[in-house]
């Protein structure tokens, strides 16, 4: 089956004062219909930029992007607008991603009006349907964002993203700003909507328990590059890349009788500006050797399990 989204050798560089910042560097991946790809990594690893670049919120530097097999990499103007209806995004912070001067109704209605797909009287009905879909009471229809709590605001953001029935949705840390009890409500909602509408998600987050819960496949990023890519369960059972191992061991376990022993990494993320060729994790890695100074390719280690580490077979 054709994947909904496919990305080949995608690069996004930002020119900065003292060089070039490699935010996304040579990323290739694909997501099938109704599936969720989780993208994890620490702040500054380029995971949000990847999501935004795919849906053309930012122009890519080079590489190719396909939607349902059609090359959309270089679309502009009218054609891009048409394609955009199929690709939407839910933002991290429901406090700043919604216009504070628009009511719930106006926020959800806006994409419907812009698309010119519906007549004026139809728009009312579709808006009502959308509010029901995401579980916002009709009595809140004329409320402003400041009158809503974070969970409800995020529901408004979800309704707006789903208004034009997209195929592909980038969820950029949609629950990071929410409390745990509310976070569970929103995660369940996203999952239910995916099942009802066959949505394809790219779920960007730094929260590994959330990503395990929601994703079919997981892609681990480090300084703009994919270091490991495999099915979700496989990643947690059998992490291969030294960075993934350290990342997983650092999650504090809630099982008090089986505490995990975190592997403490040296140092911090190095700068993504003018990076040297070779493995970007090498300076913090306990297994680094001379060979790590060569560029690392993502290679299939076992069926469906990719990792970008030249020493991956030796260190298991």
């Amino acid at each position: 089956m054709r994947p909904v989204i496919e990305v080949k050798n995608l690069k996004k560089y930002f020119p900065v004062a003292n060089g070039v910042l490699h935010a996304v560097d040579d990323v290739s991946l694909s997501i099938g219909r109704g599936k969720t790809l989780g993208v994890v990594g620490e702040s500054g690893c380029g995971k949000s930029t990847l999501g935004r670049t795919i849906i053309h919120l930012q122009e890519h530097t080079s590489g190719e992007i396909f939607l349902h097999g059609d090359d959309i990499s270089n679309l502009k103007g009218k054609e891009l607008r048409k394609v955009r209806e199929k690709m939407q995004i839910i933002f991290q912070d429901p406090y700043s991603s919604i216009d504070p001067r628009k009511t719930v109704d106006a926020t959800i209605r806006e994409p419907l009006q812009v698309s010119k797909r519906y007549k004026r009287n139809e728009i009312d009905d579709v808006t009502t349907e959308l509010m029901e879909l995401v579980g916002i009471d009709n009595r809140l229809r004329m409320s402003y964002p400041h009158e809503l709590d974070g969970g409800r605001r995020q529901r408004v953001g979800i309704a707006r993203a789903l208004a034009l029935n997209p195929d592909f949705v980038v969820c950029d840390e949609p629950v990071s700003a929410l409390d745990v009890s509310i976070q569970a409500q929103v995660l369940n909602l996203l999952k239910k909507l995916q099942q009802q509408r066959g949505l394809t998600y790219m779920f960007v987050t730094h929260n590994l328990s959330v990503v395990k819960h929601i994703s079919d496949d997981i892609c681990v990023m480090y300084l703009g590059q994919v270091v490991e890519l495999c099915p979700s369960k496989e990643l947690f059972k059998n992490p291969l890349h030294p960075y993934t191992k350290a990342l997983l061991s650092a999650i504090p376990s809630i099982d008090i009788h089986n505490p995990n022993k975190p592997e403490i990494l040296k140092g911090e993320l190095t700068s993504p500006i003018n990076p040297k060729p070779g493995c970007r994790f090498a300076s913090r890695c306990n297994f680094a050797t001379e060979a790590c100074k060569q560029p690392q390719k993502l290679q299939e280690i076992s069926s469906g399990h990719f990792a970008a580490c030249c020493r991956v077979r030796e260190i298991q």
Binding site: D179, S181, I182, A184, N188, K191, S209, K212, H213
Partner: peptide, 24 residues
């Protein structure tokens, strides 16, 4: 108990989380 149910647990595979309904 509600708090424990609402966190995705790395040790378990579950289809749905159990949120605490309502708001603080």
């Amino acid at each position: 108990i509600g708090l424990f149910g609402a966190i995705p647990n790395l040790g378990r595979d579950e289809e749905w989380l159990h949120p605490i309904e309502g708001l603080p």
